[in-house]
Each structure stands twice: as C-alpha cells, then as structure tokens.
Write a protein that binds this DNA or RNA. Structure first.
Lengths: 141, 141
DNA sequence: CCCACATACATGCATATGCATCTATCTTGC
DNA sequence: GCAAGATAGATGCATATGCATGTATGTGGG
C-alpha cells in the first residue's frame, strides 16, 4: 500500500518540525550551560512520581528510552549526584532510582530555560486552539 | 515567559509521536535488512536534483543535517557505492555529490519498504483532511 | 524441588554524533 | 596584489547510541 502525498507530507513535516524546534531549544540550553535536554525528562518523571522514585523500567515506559540507553543515562545522572540508586527489596533484580535535592534543583533550573524556550519556539507560533488541535492529531499516531 | 499547558502538551506530543512512529518505521527497515533511514533523505534529494547531483552544503540545507555529520554520511554512502564525489571546477573548495545507479536502485528499494511503512504508521491513522491539517500546523513551527 | 523460561538491568564492542579546529580556497577592501 | 576575513569541507577526540549478550533473580509446570 502506497501512502498518499498528504500522508507523506505529514510525516516529513513531523520529522522536520521536531528537528527545527529541537535545534532551537538545544541552542538555548547550550547558551545557558545546561546539561542535555534528555536529562530533563527523566528528572521530571521522578519529580512527578510518588516519593520521587521509580524503577528504571517505569522510567523507560514513560520516556520511550531504550533500556540500555536508560541504564547509562542513570549512570550519568548518578555521577552528577542528581539521582541515587537504591535497592528494591521486593525483587532482587530491581532497584529504585531516587531523585536527590540536587536533582530537583537542577530540574527547576532547567525549566527556567526550557519553559520560555518552549513558549518562544512553539507557543508563540500557535494559538491555543491550534496547539490543542496539534496535540490531538499527534496523539493519533 | 512561561508556556501554557496547551503549548507544552503540543511539544511533548510532537517529540513522542515522532519517537513512536520512527521506532515503528525503523523496525520495518531492519526487518527488510535496509540501511539506516537517514540514508534515504540524502538519496532522495539527489534523485530530485538536476543531474542527480548536489553540493554537500545544498544537501545540508535540504536535510537539516549538520555539516560534520553530512560529511561522514557521504563517506559511508560513497563507500557503499551509492554516491560518488566529483570535483567542482568553478570553486576549488567545493565538490559534487553524484548519485550512482546503485544509489538510485537502493533508494527505490528502500521506498518499497518506506512507503508502505509510512502508510501503515501514519496514513492509516489519519484521514486525508487530518493529514493536511497536521502538515499545516507543523509548518508553522 | 527443579528445570525451562521470563524479567530486570548491565556491559563489551562497533558505530554514530557533537564539538572544536584544521586545511584549502575564495572574496573584499585597500 | 595582498592581508583579513569568509566559506566549503574534513577530521581528532570525547561522548552517546545500537546491538548483542551477560548476569542475576524471579516464576510456573511437572
């Protein structure tokens, strides 16, 4: 089955739009000397979670990170003192990843750049209605 | 300036939707033993171009690839015989990247998987009108 | 109880990416 | 015609990613 041109254009548009916006946001991050954008998602999931802690596979499910990438990302976050690994007694294979105070502070500091950057590069280009419409369409994929 | 929730959701939705669809398409590519998806864009731009050739910086502008990544991607394509570098006489710093017959054949073969994959993972989930709407919204970013 | 299989996470190795910088060639102003 | 700067592209080095597989622990059937 061949895709119609509308479909192909939507897909290309999706990849390119993400590319463009991401590049701008990453530029803002570098200008603010912040760590990689990907760190934010993990810290945010931990802040949201009950007790500030999650199992690695739960973080993976929420962020779509591959297991081996997440394993090493947690290493980096732990090395920077932003999270801490704790043993999970109910299952010897498992562990908790717990956000530290430094991790909470870093997430907050990142948001100081991230929030305005999202507003500048996404919010300013769409009306509220358009943003809602976009979200609804993307959710279908 | 802080982004409203509609804006943030649109941005998160954009990243996640691209992630999900890309993962599915890449799965299809691997199942068909095809090279990385990123090769397609370069080959496609070359096929489109007058004479099947472009300057590296022109490819970069069309694909949003960083200069150093593109330089090495062209190396890989050349090593596989899919493109050929040719000197650009009008400017000693420049070069042509020319698609080969093998390159054209590979692009066509990739499309045999890519097209149906786009249809399955994007087209099947959106009506024509929705796809057009999505394209229009993404173009604003 | 034990064997086969599943699940959680880590890791060695090859490849890809980002960053900074390099070389070579143009262009401009004087 | 030349020095100063811009542009095209390549590359060394550190880091990140993908893939396959490893280790440890858990579960379920006989």
């Amino acid at each position: 089955m061949r895709p119609g041109p509308e479909t192909t254009e939507a897909w290309i548009g999706l990849m390119r739009a993400r590319e463009r916006v991401l590049a701008r946001i990453e530029t803002d991050f570098k200008a603010a000397s912040l760590p990689p954008l990907g760190w934010y998602d993990v810290l945010w999931e931990l802040v949201q979670a009950e007790g500030g802690r999650l199992r690695p596979f739960e973080i993976g499910a929420r962020t779509l990170l591959a297991q081996y990438n997440l394993s090493r990302l947690i290493d980096r976050l732990a090395k920077e003192g932003l999270v801490r690994r704790e043993s999970f007694d109910a299952d010897g294979r498992g562990q908790w990843v717990v956000i530290t105070e430094a991790g909470r502070a870093m997430r907050a500091r990142m948001w100081l750049t991230y929030g305005p950057s999202i507003e500048a590069h996404v919010g300013a280009r769409l009306s509220e209605a358009e943003a809602r419409q976009l979200t609804a369409l993307l959710a279908k994929l």
